[in-house]
Nucleic acid binder design. Sequence first.
DNA 1: GCAAATACCTATACATCCTAGGAAAGCAGG
DNA 2: CCTGCTTTCCTAGGATGTATAGGTATTTGC
Lengths: 206, 206
Amino acid sequence: MARAGLTSERVTRAAAELADAVGFENITVSALARSFGVRDASLYSHVRNLQDLRERIALLAAGELADRIAAAVAGRSGKEAMVAFADAYREYALAHPGRYAATQVRLDPAVLARSPAHARNVELTYAMLRAYRLVEPDLTDAGRLLRSTFHGYVTLEAGGGFGHSREVRASWERGLDALHLLLENWPADPSGRQAGASPPGGILEA
Amino acid sequence: MARAGLTSERVTRAAAELADAVGFENITVSALARSFGVRDASLYSHVRNLQDLRERIALLAAGELADRIAAAVAGRSGKEAMVAFADAYREYALAHPGRYAATQVRLDPAVLARSPAHARNVELTYAMLRAYRLVEPDLTDAGRLLRSTFHGYVTLEAGGGFGHSREVRASWERGLDALHLLLENWPADPSGRQAGASPPGGILEA
DNA sequence: GCAAATACCTATACATCCTAGGAAAGCAGG
DNA sequence: CCTGCTTTCCTAGGATGTATAGGTATTTGC
């Protein structure tokens, strides 16, 4: 009997495609095995268990997302970079809903720390925000707001939460205009606080 | 043998609590039955199946969330109302992660249309935004942006995406300050479009 | 107190996750 | 070619979960 030629990588890639097709929460080892024409048990030589498989998809997706964003922002700055970042983010999430959902799983901090993909995402966000000349803690606050908005937007859009009364693309563009304005005119801290500065790498995580 | 006194409502409420404890995606009919000291099959008289159970939790949670928000914004307007809305939203999501996750499931449009809870949420959002005197399509765009930000923020926060380098509460408050400013100074449409007006009830759904 | 409604049961079929241990395909070196 | 090792994939089977069919026992309404 001809072998299927399984490896951890191939299994992970197939799992990512399955996730895009049926939803990240609906992937099963059984279905994945069927797609290879192989028994369930055979996959356990390449992947520890279902959770491990999910983590692998998460790392794969984080890397792909970082690649797309990096390519989009290359050579741009200011509002152009912000919009390119946002569009790349949204396009990836909509084109690969299962993979995108994978990027939102809570990873073991040890795994996370060893993931260059996640570090790159943080750096890209930081680099994009540099143009707005914010200083801590505003930088952290603005980064969190921006990231929340991007994530919330694509999640709601993909989940059908927006309906069809107005083109989502148009709303998105206006939203980005508004966010750019917001970042350019970030309000001064009314309480006059200046504490809690975090290191450059700490905007999003850690 | 003494009966457990099951009803659809009690089962749903227990399921909601289970969801808060173990996560919305991890609820099982078996675990729910165990919590009542009853066999799995017994629950199927009160709930059609697992998906039906999830929908019931979703409707329950949407109603609770609308209640909290309504209570919070009562008697307030302008920025006060917006902040009260946002805080109530965030507090509910953090206090009841499983129920909150349930509010994000894609519901059958027929079920949705018949849910007063969802209609109330839409109305509350619309009422809160009225103070900013936006006209369509800006109203829809701003509503989508706001809702995305709230949702994204609490999702990332609950998922541990923010880490501990700066108090999330402080970031949240600064974010709300910024959003208020944004709503007060919503940018004019650069393209001069004016089309796509949606009816009052259509900001968020339909 | 009797009949109808219904709350809860047993039994069963099937899907999925995962482990243990075995067979067979591919790959060395002779 | 053949011998032995590694790796790939297998069968077998236990545990847990979803769901249906059909039966028994408890309540409830008259």
